[in-house]
């Protein structure tokens, strides 16, 4: 489920195209847009408080073998929510999970780590070392 949250809609579409034959999919709960109240912690580590809401889209599907797939994702893409629910259902079978590794998990992880590396390097270039200047009268 984490990988679906990290993937783009295009990546999920591509993954299912690369996956090959997909069992019949039936919508149990068609993709639905809603809100989740995001919480923070007072002072970063204290008691919880409600920081504000985010749009979230959820979906539930059933594969023909009866496996249920769920998704809850930030944003309002119904297509993405449905794709993620299908992938969640596929991922519950060990063989299919291995297949998902090559067509989804590896490419998404690769892209993400390249992006993270670039971002960390750009951020690291702004690392600052301040000096305290000794005052003359001291």
């Amino acid at each position: 489920m984490r990988i679906c949250a990290q993937a783009t809609e295009a990546e999920l579409t591509q993954a299912l195209a690369d996956f090959g034959a997909i069992p019949q999919v039936e919508d149990v709960r068609s993709p639905e847009e809603g809100l989740v109240m995001l919480r923070g912690r007072i002072g970063g580590d204290g008691a919880a408080f409600n920081a504000g809401e985010a749009t979230v889209t959820r979906a539930v599907i059933r594969l023909e073998d009866g496996t249920l797939g769920y998704s809850y994702l930030l944003g309002r893409s119904r297509t993405k929510a449905r794709l993620a629910a299908i992938i969640d259902a596929l991922g519950q079978n060990e063989d299919r999970r291995a297949q998902l590794r090559t067509c989804l998990i590896e490419p998404v992880t690769q892209r993400r780590s390249a992006e993270t590396k670039a971002r960390n390097e750009e951020t690291a270039a702004t690392r600052v070392n301040f000096f305290t200047v000794v005052r003359g009268e001291d």
Binding site: L35, M37, R39, R41, A48, E53
Partner: peptide, 16 residues
């Protein structure tokens, strides 16, 4: 936001 159903509350975000 008033047009949308509330699914629930998130786990507190870990800013550390």
């Amino acid at each position: 936001r008033t047009t949308l159903p509330r699914f629930g509350y998130s786990e507190p975000a870990n800013t550390s």
